[in-house]
């Protein structure tokens, strides 16, 4: 379990993370989303024990992480910009990891060779960006971590490799209750992987929820009524976050329970009434809109 309690981190005068509380349950896969510069990477680096928070505490399994060798042996962090020693081959790098991570599993490393299929005698710096990312996963998953922290991990991986890596991750989650925290902008991918979601904006956590609850709570509805008055009537009764009109059909983004929304809308006998599921991408855009980070189409 990862727990952050009222954590703040500043760089000079810049507050990167502001009073954040977050809990990631053991065995869960947590997706951290947010606008650019929201403080995701800073938060992840604090979880990995790289940065020391100014105020508040970050603990893994109830022990503070910063400078804690015992806990850090169980944590693997794949940063957005990878680092390997210059001139090292995969085998050499693996040897280095083996000396650091006491849980290193050599047979796991060999089994994963079948997944990644890269010759271990190749120099990592001569590999492509995507292949370097594969090596990072290969090494991290051989360390048998209890916590895996991934910053923008999908970047540069081809669809086949993504699927393979996802599969391996899921097996580790199912078998060993590994906890995974992922930051990404690829919402389609996050939607498939995660069970919990946190959305950050300007250093703060604005939403934290189980993904399915978030989905069950926001709906996109299409309605058409005989008169404007009827529409106004239902809009007044519902918690509408967004409204759009396409001809005589209105598209509303509504929060609340599905059955309740159905009841209210049907009471006015609409011509057209459909409830459409929202994608995570749409939800993200509307949640961000609520805190004033909206899509404006600026005319050039």
């Amino acid at each position: 379990m990862i727990e952050a309690k009222s954590v703040t981190k500043k760089f000079h005068n810049e507050t990167a993370v502001r009073n954040i509380n977050i809990t990631v349950k053991r065995g869960s896969i947590y997706g951290l989303l947010g606008s650019n510069g929201a403080g995701k990477t800073t938060l992840l680096k604090m979880m990995a024990g790289i940065y020391r928070p100014e105020t508040g505490t970050i603990s893994i399994e109830d022990v503070p992480v910063f400078e804690n060798v015992f806990i850090k042996k169980k944590v693997c962090y794949i940063p957005d910009t990878l680092y390997f020693f210059p001139q090292n081959t995969i085998a050499q790098m693996a040897e280095y990891y083996q000396n650091i991570y006491s849980e290193w599993d050599a047979s796991r490393f060999n089994t994963l060779k079948r997944v990644f299929q890269i010759d271990t005698d190749r120099k990592i710096h001569k590999l492509s960006k995507g292949m370097q990312r594969q090596v990072a996963f290969w090494l991290a998953l051989s360390c048998m971590p209890s916590v895996l922290i991934l910053d923008e991990p999908i970047d540069g991986l081809d669809p086949v490799m993504r699927q393979k890596i996802k599969n391996v991750l899921f097996q580790d989650v199912a078998d060993r209750e590994m906890t995974v925290i992922i930051s990404s902008h690829n919402l389609r991918e996050i939607e498939d992987i995660c069970d919990h979601i946190g959305i950050m904006h300007q250093g703060e956590l604005i939403v934290e929820k189980e993904l399915d609850d978030l989905k069950a709570d926001t709906h996109k509805i299409q309605v058409a009524f005989k008169s404007e008055l009827q529409e106004k009537h239902i809009v007044d009764q519902l918690e509408v976050v967004h409204q759009e009109k396409r001809g005589s059909v209105s598209v509303l983004i509504v929060k609340g329970e599905e059955s309740n929304i159905k009841r209210i809308v049907r009471s006015e006998k609409p011509f057209v009434f459909d409830i459409l599921p929202l994608t995570l991408e749409e939800m993200f855009i509307y949640e961000m809109g609520e805190v004033g980070y909206e899509i404006e189409n600026i005319l050039l």
Binding site: G27, S28, I29, Q163, K166, N167, F170, Q171, V173, A174, D175, D192, I193, C194, D195, D212
Partner: peptide, 18 residues
């Protein structure tokens, strides 16, 4: 089992459990 189905379908095991 959750484990097997997760592996077969490449779905988050927590989702299957749920």
């Amino acid at each position: 089992s959750v484990r097997m189905l997760s592996k077969e379908l490449t779905i988050n095991p927590n989702t299957i459990q749920k």
